[in-house]
Design a protein around this nucleic acid. Structure first.
Lengths: 238, 238
DNA sequence: GGCAATTTGTACGTATGTATA
DNA sequence: GTATACATACGTACAAATTGC
């Protein structure tokens, strides 16, 4: 599939392993982590690599280390959930439907407002990008290849970007990471692809026509449908 | 003033210095950073300390390092703005009024929705905490000591927490950090302290009475006033 | 106050990868 | 292409600081 070789150095690999394990709960908040020396032995690497990994995880708020006390896991409320790695570890480990619901509540706050800002202040060339994404979605709806996902993602990120607000546009990684996981659950009824693409197109039109309130409401509707779907799934399983 | 001694180890100090310098634009995206060896000399520390600092900054998305190429500054769009340190560096360096406006646009998306979620799903004991913050604000309005700020902050964070959604409640550090800076600009007309406390109390009442729509609208009103104030300041200076 | 355990900080050596001549 | 130089990547070893007993 021409997948690009993971270009991670040693400390980043260890960071990934430990980060995943911490988020998955393999190291509790009280028990703490093994000592540096033990980690060296466990992974068969030097202290330098372990220490760099520890520093990276500390920078993401997952752990803290003090002399004599060792390496301790921080409370989950201190974890930086808006770090792409942390979010990825979280979504790949925990019972995902509940996290997805929280995630959709978040999107319901962010994206309608971003759409409104894009309609009000967005630069024309940034709005063009939204249009391109819509066209790609329409094309993907007729095309059996699985390019719908990419186009969908491009649509949402281009709106965040068009908001002209760096706090919104930075959430593109947050949205993307979580969207990649949510795909697994929202087993799309392939039949409505055209209808879905049309819903997206309406939002684009509202932004293009500089109708903030309309863009906000249409986006609210779009995400609320996804949220309702997840809530139904939870009810089925629960 | 009994200020607690900064308990930062060496690599964290260097991280702070370099992080601030990068965000302030002292190292551009093209020019890159000095080599490890040069940084060692500049700060009079070992390479290990420098490397750990580099890893922490890389974990926050500010830089990346590759052999032969050296340490390069990442594009600002890749910086993790929701990292408390990064946000602090950003707010302390750049022309803050514009950043504050973007920040308030963000709060306008988040906090009304959080208030609605708190009203709909919030646990009673979490809502009690909002009430306590309101009482503290009322007390501070009559008290000349500067405890209003702390109470204000407690109010907003307690609502985020009461939302029961980890993505919202994690933004408490984001809100707090930025609120600390915004205080410098919003030179409060001390006379309306009571009126302000009353606006906050209304939101609490709506949440307590389980009125999501009302809580959402009141919060929207509260933050929109602050945003209007900042926009006026920008117009004055511009 | 002394002792032991553990992280913190330093020093230096080798390996690897990557631009440039 | 090949070689070379240079910067980071990785490893080992040891001294210092901190903290619990």
């Amino acid at each position: 599939m021409g997948r690009i070789i993971e270009n991670l150095n040693l400390s980043e690999q260890v960071t990934n392993e430990l980060g995943r394990a911490i988020v998955a709960g393999e190291y509790s908040c009280e028990s703490g982590l093994p000592t540096e020396a033990q980690l060296c032995e466990e992974y068969g690497i030097s202290r330098t690599a372990v220490r760099e990994a520890v520093k990276m995880l500390a920078a993401k708020g997952l752990i803290s280390s003090r002399p004599r006390q060792g390496i301790s896991v921080e409370q989950p409320s201190n974890w930086n959930l808006y770090d792409t790695s942390v979010l990825k570890w979280l979504l790949s480990s925990s019972p995902s439907l509940y996290v997805l619901k929280e995630f959709l509540q978040m999107r319901l706050a962010i994206e309608p407002e971003a759409a409104a800002l894009a309609a009000e202040f967005g630069r024309d060339e940034d709005i063009d990008q939204i249009g391109k994404a819509v066209e790609a979605m329409k094309a993907a709806a007729n095309d059996p290849s699985g390019s719908m996902h990419d186009a969908d993602l491009a649509f949402h990120t281009s709106i965040l970007f068009a908001s002209g607000n760096r706090f919104f546009s930075h959430l593109r990684d947050f949205i993307s990471t979580a969207l990649n996981v949510s795909i697994q659950h929202t087993t799309p009824a392939k039949a409505n692809d055209l209808a879905v693409a049309d819903d997206h197109a309406k939002i684009y039109t509202a932004i293009r026509n500089r109708q903030p309130e309309r863009a906000r409401n249409l986006m609210k509707y779009l995400i609320d449908e996804a949220k309702t779907f997840i809530e139904l799934e939870i009810k089925k399983q629960g």
